[in-house]
Simulated scan of single mutants.
Amino acid sequence: MIKRENSIKIEECSEEFTLDIEGNCHIFKDAIFFDLEHYLYKKPICIGVFGCAYYDSDAGELKITQYMIEEKKDALPILNLAKEYFEDMHNNFNKRYIVTFSGNNDFTVIDYLFNKNNIQCNIDDLFKKVDLQREYEKATGENIGLKNLEKKFGIEREGELISGGNLSKTFCKVMKDFDYMNRMPEEKRQRILLYNEQDVTSLFRMIVDWKKYMKSE
Rank of each mutant, 00 (worst) to 15 (best):
N80A: 03
F153W: 10
C13E: 03
L19T: 00
K3H: 11
E22V: 07
I2S: 06
K129M: 12
F127W: 05
S168M: 14
L79R: 04
I98S: 04
G51L: 01
L40M: 11
K151A: 11
I2M: 12
P77R: 10
C121M: 12
R183F: 13
D179Q: 06
V208T: 15
Q120N: 15
P44Q: 05
R189D: 02
F153R: 03
I144D: 14
D74S: 10
A75T: 09
V109A: 01
M68C: 15
M214P: 09
Q66M: 10
G51K: 02
H26E: 08
A53H: 10
E87Y: 05
Q133V: 04
N118E: 09
M68H: 08
E156A: 10
G141I: 10
R157S: 07
D20S: 15
G60T: 01
F86Y: 10
K151D: 12
Y180H: 11
I144A: 04
V200D: 02
A53L: 11
I207M: 00
K83I: 12
L161C: 01
K173Y: 09
G103L: 01
M214I: 12
Y112V: 02
V49D: 04
D106S: 07
I21F: 13
K129V: 15
M214N: 00
K72I: 12
L193R: 04
D74Q: 09
N122Q: 10
K173W: 05
G23L: 04
I78Y: 06
R205D: 15
L149A: 00
C25G: 07
S14W: 07
P185M: 07
T18S: 14
N182F: 11
I27A: 05
K215G: 03
N122V: 06
E22Q: 08
Q190H: 11
L167S: 05
V130N: 05
A53S: 10
T170L: 15
V99H: 09
E137N: 07
E84Q: 13
E37S: 08
E15M: 10
I47Y: 04
K129T: 09
A53C: 09
D58W: 00
I69P: 01
R4D: 07
D20Y: 09
D35Y: 05
N92C: 12
I98H: 03
M1G: 14
L161S: 13
G145C: 14
I123A: 06
S202V: 05
D58E: 11
K188H: 10
M89T: 04
S14E: 13
F204R: 00
K42E: 15
E22T: 00
S202D: 02
L76A: 06
R96S: 14
I8M: 06
E187W: 08
D209N: 14
F107H: 14
K173R: 15
G60Q: 00
R134S: 11
T108H: 05
G141Y: 08
Y180Q: 05
K29Y: 07
D106E: 10
F33K: 03
K212L: 12
E197I: 00
F17L: 05
M184W: 05
R96E: 13
